[in-house]
Design a protein around this nucleic acid. Structure first.
Lengths: 237, 237
DNA sequence: ATTCATTCGTGAAAGAAATAACGATTGAAA
DNA sequence: TTTCAATCGTTATTTCTTTCACGAATGAAT
């Protein structure tokens, strides 16, 4: 139970999604769900769902499904640190403030504990329930308050420097919204949220979906076959 | 040149990144860059960079590198629609407004043309340079103004309905920030930006990076070997 | 001119991730 | 009780992506 195999990022992301999708279905201890129903909600195949839960150690029962409560605690056992985790957000611009709002008070075990901004006017203020401090206090506060995650929402040209400061102060992971790739050691985990790439990617594939421009081969879509063809579900091919 | 092989989403995302990283290096017609230098900036291997450019049709020259101007126009040839593309953003909350600000006036060929919100107070206002309209005008405006992309920043419980309206009105692609997976036909491309998953994923792997808790096998990191070992670069293994 | 270390392009190999396939199990219906 | 269709767990397969490896090309140094 202590030394387990590391789970792949893709799986972790799906587990996070499953949990959100399951929560509204968790009514009482006797709620169950089938792999293909969750698969539909999550936009993946039923096989994928079963495989993910297998990795989690959650067993389902044929013709009954998976006990939702068991799934939820299984997922929490993986995703949530028992002692909780704290994040610091650096760069309280429009995006930073929006994230403070988005994440504020959403979870007990994972929350944004402090925000930092270069602008002295923002220091001392409380934005969406989060205290904002000047950059000069970053190192000290991160160390003192045992903050182990950093969220970077500063402009491009300051991102690397901020990352260095955060890492120096001891954070283990970074969520980076700046449009670059940060340099960092192997002991730091960095997740990039690249809004520009996302937007341009949608634009590209939206164009490709116009028939006759490209040879469409439906990748990354939801073929959604697997077992459900046996049940005679509506499969529009 | 007209019917080409569709490029994979991963590659498209990298091309978008390459372009941003190259732009500051494009000084004059005679700027060149080596695959391994761009690789370092992008946090990928040199081989990957060369592969991507091969797919693009851009050839480099040994001991000289790739002409940056050629790369940029090659990438633009793939990513940018000659006629331009317009997006509509639905849900002008904190996140929506931040995105309006983030994307406003950033590109000629791809921009957010209109915003929509349920709140009547917002209708008629201009937010970060973008006109905001009531939901009732969504269908008409999207059709009239030939908007082909949708950005969804509404709360979870409204996301599917908004997606339906956008699709009904004719958009080809969606950029979804709501924490669910949207149901949609195969002819629509949907890119999910899952902030919660991203946050929870960082939290998980930040914990894992503490030695001795997991068998670290460095996936998704930058092994960064390839040719550079031949050049004797500093490879800290 | 010749040599040589570098860098490129790309086929082959490896690795990762998703899907298909199928025996085993189970609850429900006859 | 028996039958049966539905669902599960898991192995095998496929598909996709990345990396390796190496011959070819090229500019610079001598």
């Amino acid at each position: 139970m202590s030394v387990e195999r590391e789970i792949s990022p893709r799986t972790i992301e799906r587990l996070s999604l499953y949990r959100r999708l399951l929560l509204p279905h968790h009514e009482g201890e006797d709620s169950y769900i089938f792999s293909h129903d969750l698969a539909e909600l999550a936009g993946v195949t039923a096989t994928q769902v079963r495989r993910d839960f297998m990795q989690l150690g959650c067993m389902g029962v044929p013709r009954t499904g998976y006990r939702i409560g068991e799934l939820l605690s299984g997922i929490s056992g993986i995703l949530d640190a028992p002692a909780g985790q704290r994040a610091a957000l650096v760069g309280v611009g429009h995006l930073g403030a929006a994230l403070l709002n988005h994440f504020s008070g959403r979870w007990r075990w994972l929350h944004i504990h402090a925000a930092f901004d270069r602008d002295p006017d923002k220091a001392g203020s409380v934005i969406h329930g989060c205290h904002c401090f000047p950059m000069s206090e970053l190192s000290t506060l991160i160390r003192e308050r045992k903050i182990d995650l950093g969220i970077i929402t500063v402009p491009r040209d300051h991102a690397q420097e901020v990352a260095n400061q955060l890492i120096e102060a001891g954070v283990q992971g970074l969520l980076n919204f700046a449009p670059i790739r940060l340099r960092h050691g192997d002991d730091i985990y960095v997740e990039n949220v690249d809004l520009t790439s996302a937007f341009e990617t949608v634009a590209y594939f939206a164009r490709c979906r116009r028939p006759s421009l490209f040879i469409s081969e439906s990748h990354r879509g939801f073929p959604s076959l697997d077992d459900r063809k046996l049940r005679g579900d509506d499969v529009k091919s």
